[in-house]
């Protein structure tokens, strides 16, 4: 489905797909780097592993952020609003 802005469902899906893949890849790279530093005996290894876990936890958050953008761009304000509510709930959970 093409919208007036030319942002098709396919492009929207690809945006979400790439966001998820990028998050998982970044987390995996950080974990691998952490393991590498761990083998080398570096004290920074733990911090990199932690950063990898945080990157993983933030991946669905980034995905929801992209849903807000995508639904808005796609001319579906109700779903953009629903995504925004989910994003706010995730932010609230970080504050608890």
């Amino acid at each position: 489905m093409n919208t007036p802005g030319g942002f098709s469902e396919k492009r929207f899906g690809r945006l979400i797909q790439r966001t998820l893949q990028a998050g998982v890849a970044a987390a995996f790279c950080l974990v691998l780097a952490g393991w590498g530093l761990g083998l080398a005996g570096s004290p920074a290894a733990g911090r990199l592993l932690y950063a990898g876990i945080v990157a993983l936890v933030l991946t669905p958050v980034a995905r929801v952020g992209m849903l807000v953008y995508g639904f808005q761009r796609n001319g579906q304000p109700f779903f953009a609003l629903a995504s925004l509510v989910v994003l706010l709930l995730l932010l609230v959970s970080a504050l608890l």
Binding site: V57, L58, T59, P60, V61, R63, V64, V86, L89, L90, S93, A94, L96
Partner: peptide, 11 residues
């Protein structure tokens, strides 16, 4: 479920 897990994982 990724989002629900993230909401609680943060906590």
């Amino acid at each position: 479920i990724g989002v629900s897990a993230a909401a609680s994982a943060v906590i």
